[in-house]
């Protein structure tokens, strides 16, 4: 439970609202500082291009000539030509797009397209987000089932613990960028295309945190709790259903949050090598081919928002489940 919720449930309305504000305020301040720093960073990042364009349009800048300026420090240029600072924030292909440009692009490719009735057009981030989302969720489901299954095996069998765990760990040391193209190519060659190859990459990344978290969770009952069941001559499966599984729930949700984030990364990485045209990964790649930095940043933010929503949904499920189980109060 968040501090705000605790505080607001213990106090009256006044103190509750105050407590919420106490939590919101730092967040607002941090966001404002980040956006401010971002704007400031845009000026030196984009100043050379801004000056080149201004000069081409006939303005006098200090010093004259793109060649002269090339090796100069960007900060020095920005200070010497502060009149052109504004121009750095509204370029078509900036090195670093300004926050409002990214925001505008995000809106144009989501809400704006919905308003035009083109929510699922090829330029819409809703469409690309949906493509990525479906691979993410499918891969996450496969990874979670595999992770939980592995964990159950590892906890109940010494042999599995010794035989499987090293492989599971080794699998995660292989850079995903190295094997993602192989998975895609191999699966394509046997006729498996579309959603599934990407989902398998997601599953590959997400089973591990789930397995590790669940092993820990299923082992979390202490000796006394296990001895208690021994005195009832409980079987392994009764011990599992009545003690190990319920004890593991907090671990389960926490590891699912990590698994979900990993799944999203997997789906995006899976969209990079295929020459794919669909999905946030493809959007990122296309953006970098054509120097569309604004598009890249918008896709990045879309991915971040998607991750936040997915992890938030799991967090909500966690809160509801544990509350129903009487484990948060």
């Amino acid at each position: 439970m968040s501090d705000a919720a605790i505080a607001s449930s213990s106090g009256g309305f006044g103190t509750g609202a105050r407590a919420v504000w106490d939590v919101v305020l730092p967040v607002v301040v941090v966001v404002a500082v980040i956006i401010g720093a971002w704007y400031v960073a845009c000026v030196p990042m984009n100043i050379k291009e801004a000056l080149t364009q201004a000069e081409r349009a006939g303005a006098v800048v200090e010093p004259a000539g793109a060649k002269e300026r090339r090796d100069m420090s960007a900060v020095g240029l920005a200070l010497a030509n502060s009149a052109y600072a504004r121009d750095t924030l509204n370029q078509e292909r900036p090195r670093l797009p300004a926050p409002h440009q990214v925001g505008q692009e995000l809106w144009n490719t989501t809400g704006g397209m919905v308003l035009n009735g083109k929510a699922f057009s090829k330029r819409s981030l809703i469409y690309h987000g949906w493509v990525t989302l479906s691979a993410t969720v499918l891969g996450f489901a496969i990874g979670t089932v595999a992770g939980v299954g592995l964990a159950i095996g590892i906890v109940h069998s010494r042999v599995m613990n010794m035989a499987v765990m090293p492989w599971a760990i080794a699998s995660q040391t292989i850079p995903i960028l190295a094997i993602a193209p192989m998975i895609i190519v191999v699966l394509n060659s046997i006729g498996v295309t579309g959603l599934l190859p990407k989902a398998l990459i997601s599953a590959y990344l997400s089973f591990f945190p789930v397995a590790v978290g669940m092993v820990k969770g299923l082992r979390s009952p202490d000796n006394m709790q296990l001895d208690l069941l021994s005195t009832y001559s409980a079987s392994q499966s009764e011990t599992f259903w009545k003690l190990r599984l319920p004890s593991s729930m907090p671990y389960f949700f926490t590891s699912m949050k990590i698994g979900m984030a990993a799944s999203l990364v997997g789906a995006i990485v899976g969209e990079l090598p295929t020459g794919a045209v669909r999905g946030l990964g493809a959007r990122l790649l296309a953006g970098s081919y054509y120097g569309q930095t604004v598009q890249i940043w918008a896709a990045l933010f879309a991915a971040a928002i998607l991750a936040a929503v997915l992890v938030g949904v799991i967090g909500l499920l966690q809160r509801m489940t544990l509350k129903k189980m009487g484990m948060v109060h």
Binding site: M224, Q225, D227, L228, T231, Y232, S233, P246, M325, G326
Partner: peptide, 21 residues
């Protein structure tokens, strides 16, 4: 004797399962 439910055991800590009433 345990198979025949001969005894109940009370530990030092109550050890109630928090998810059960």
């Amino acid at each position: 004797a345990r198979q025949q439910r001969a005894y109940g055991y009370v530990f030092q800590a109550a050890g109630l399962y928090p998810w059960r009433t």
